[in-house]
C-alpha cells in the first residue's frame, strides 16, 4: 500500500511516495533523499545522533515514522548554513573544538539549535548540559560542546538585540 507524504525539508518541498510505512524519517533522509548529514547511532532513541528539528521541536528521527509526518516542516544539518556562511552554532563548534571524530556532531548541533529555539538554557552551564543530555558523545567532547552552545546562544541573542540578520 503506497502512501504519499508532502514534506518541507530545509525549505524545499518534497512529495515522497512510501512503498512501506516502516521507513523512519532517518532512513528517508539518509537512504532515499541522500541527506546523509543526519547520523544513525543507536537507532532506538538513546544517543541523539539522528536529531533533527520537526515542526520547530528537536526529535530523534530514528523513532519517527515518515508516514506520520505529512505536512511537516523539517530542518536538518544540511539546512543550517547560508551558502558558505556557517550558522552561529556551527561556527561556535569549530571555535571551541566541540568534537573529535565528528559522528555525534550533526545531532549535537541540531539539538543545540533546538535548545536555543526553546530559549530555556540561559547562560547557565548546568542548564545547557541538562538541555543537551539527549546527545551522547563517545569522544567526550562535552566540555567544548557546552562552551560552544553557550557562546552561540550569546551571539544569537546579541544579533537579535541589535537587529542584525542571522
Amino acid at each position: 500500500m503506497n502512501k504519499s507524504v508532502n514534506l518541507s525539508i530545509n525549505g524545499t518541498r518534497h512529495a515522497v511516495t512510501l512503498d512501506d510505512p516502516r521507513v523512519t524519517l532517518l532512513d528517508l533522509l539518509r537512504e532515499r533523499l541522500d541527506l546523509t548529514g543526519t547520523k544513525k547511532g543507536c537507532d532506538r532513541g538513546q544517543c541523539g545522533a539522528c536529531t533533527i528539528i520537526l515542526n520547530g521541536r528537536r526529535v530523534n528521527s530514528c523513532l519517527t515514522l515518515a508516514v506520520s509526518c505529512g505536512g511537516a516542516e523539517i530542518l536538518t544539518i544540511e539546512g543550517l548554513a547560508q551558502g558558505d556562511v556557517l550558522h552561529p552554532v556551527q561556527a561556535a563548534f569549530i571555535e571551541h573544538d566541540a568534537f573529535q571524530c565528528g559522528f555525534c556532531t550533526p545531532g549535537q548541533i541540531m539539538s543545540a539549535v533546538g535548545l536555543i529555539m526553546e530559549g530555556q538554557a540561559g547562560d547557565d552551564e548546568e542548564r545547557i548540559r541538562e538541555g543537551m543530555s539527549g546527545n551522547l558523545c563517545r569522544c567526550g567532547a562535552y566540555a567544548g560542546i557546552t562552551q560552544a552552545v553557550r557562546q552561540a546562544q550569546a551571539r544569537m541573542n546579541e544579533r537579535e538585540r541589535t537587529g542584525e540578520a542571522a
Partner: peptide, 9 residues
C-alpha cells in the same frame, strides 16, 4: 523522564 528529544514526542 528521558531527555529533551524524547520528551518532545
Amino acid at each position: 523522564i528521558a531527555d529533551p528529544q524524547v520528551r518532545n514526542c
